[in-house]
């Protein structure tokens, strides 16, 4: 399974990559914001996107909307991992079709549970 991790902080990408590797995801690529991520998604056969919300350039929520609006990408599950904690934003993400929402700071166990839930629902 091919995963794209999107975050503007390289340290956070590294943490998420390590946790994903522990969960058995070995094919992981990285992007530092939505505008870098979108062409990568359009060019490659990604199966899962884990993205931050607040990034310079294209934000995670706009990346999510762009994915849902693109017929060739709209099926890809998207997990938001973000420090954004306003109820309004969580509702906004849900309406935009997010598959999971994790608030930072988060634990490895939370990531595991959310990812399992996402793929359970898709199965």
């Amino acid at each position: 399974m091919k995963v794209l991790v999107v975050d503007d902080f390289s340290t956070m990408r590294r943490i998420v990559k390590n946790l994903l590797r522990d969960l058995g995801f070995t094919n992981i690529q990285e992007a530092d914001d939505g505008s870098t991520a979108l062409p990568m998604l359009q060019g490659g056969d990604f199966d899962f996107v884990v993205t931050d919300w607040n990034m310079p350039g294209m934000q995670g929520i706009d990346l999510l909307k762009a994915i849902r609006a693109d017929a060739s990408l709209s099926h890809i599950p998207v997990l938001l991992i973000t420090a954004e904690a306003k109820k309004e934003q969580i509702v906004m993400a849900a309406q935009a079709g997010v598959n999971g929402y994790i608030v930072k700071p988060f634990t490895a166990a939370t990531l595991k549970t959310k990812i399992e839930k996402i793929f359970e629902r898709l199965a």
């Binding site: 706009d62 109820k87 509702v91 608030v103």
Partner: peptide, 27 residues
């Protein structure tokens, strides 16, 4: 997109979630 970054005074705000459980409940 209402972006604000990490909330440092969650106890004093009622427009934000306190933790992951709150997020899950809301969703």
């Amino acid at each position: 997109n209402l972006v604000e970054g990490p909330i440092i005074n969650k106890e004093n705000r009622d427009d934000v979630v306190a933790d992951q459980d709150d997020v899950d409940d809301l969703l």
